[in-house]
Amino acid sequence: MTIRTLTDLYIDQLQDIYSANRQSLEVSKKLRETASSGDLKRALDNGVSGIEEGMTKVKSLIEGHKADPTGEFCKGMEGLVKEVKAHAINADITDGDVRDASIIAQYQRMAHYAMAGYGTAAAFAERLGLTNDAATLRKCLDDTQSGDRRMTGIAVGTVNAEAMAA
């Protein structure tokens, strides 16, 4: 896709978010299977649901602009997914609590990438006068930030202390 206008860039960014969500969805499911902590498993279940909701919303926005949701492949998330696999899923970590701490760290990296995408796209939508799109993207951003805060709470509340005892 040739990008000539802010609208073109906006659609490109939405497609990138959609691709990032598709990639993070699959690896988040694997993180859930790998986690030891019940709180972390529940948070990852919620994260998977949130990613799926975000994908549905972003797909609808893209299609509303007569574009293909799969028109872009997010190389940034591809790299983050490789890191998740290397440092949490396939890592040689012998203690479940230490692995949980690594899972949270890796998940939050993906969440922060998503927050950057949602925030940027929402700003573009606002500038373009796409009020409904902007509201949808702000909601996705807020939901992602909420999930990130929950992960921090689990890390600080229990997981990091338990990992320290390993």
Rank of each mutant, 00 (worst) to 15 (best):
K57N: 13
D148H: 12
G50S: 05
A91E: 06
S37C: 03
E78G: 15
I104F: 12
V81D: 06
F73H: 15
A123R: 06
L128C: 14
A86T: 07
D95G: 12
E63A: 15
G129F: 14
I51M: 01
A91K: 11
A91S: 14
I89P: 00
G79T: 09
G153F: 06
A123W: 07
I62K: 07
L130V: 10
T152Q: 09
A114S: 08
C140L: 12
S60Y: 05
F73T: 13
K139F: 06
F73C: 00
A121M: 04
A105W: 02
G54L: 03
G117W: 02
L128G: 11
E72V: 04
R109W: 05
R99W: 09
T56Q: 11
L40T: 03
A135P: 00
R138H: 14
N132R: 14
Q106A: 04
V98H: 03
A91Q: 08
G153C: 09
S37E: 09
V84R: 02
E126P: 00
Y113Q: 05
A88E: 05
D148Y: 05
G50R: 02
R138E: 13
D142N: 13
G71E: 05
Q106I: 12
L61Y: 06
I93M: 08
D142Q: 10
S60I: 14
S49Q: 11
A135I: 11
A134T: 13
A88N: 04
H112R: 10
E126A: 15
E83A: 04
D97I: 07
V58T: 14
A122K: 10
D95M: 03
A86G: 10
D143C: 07
L137F: 08
H87E: 13
R150P: 00
G117L: 01
G38M: 04
D95R: 08
D100G: 10
K66L: 04
L137W: 11
L141T: 09
D39K: 10
A91D: 12
D143I: 09
K139L: 07
A101C: 11
G54T: 14
V98M: 14
H87M: 11
G47S: 07
R42Y: 00
K139Y: 02
D100R: 08
G157H: 03
R149M: 03
A134S: 13
Q108T: 12
N160G: 06
I93N: 06
T136H: 02
E78W: 04
D68M: 11
K59P: 05
G79D: 08
A86D: 13
Q108F: 07
A123T: 15
A86F: 02
C140G: 14
G50E: 01
G54H: 05
G147R: 06
D92P: 03
M77I: 06
I104P: 06
T144R: 02
I104G: 04
N46A: 10
T120E: 07
M110S: 15
R109F: 12
K59F: 08
A121G: 07
T144Y: 01
C140S: 15
L128P: 09
K41S: 08
E72P: 02
G54E: 05
S102A: 15
I62H: 01
E126S: 12
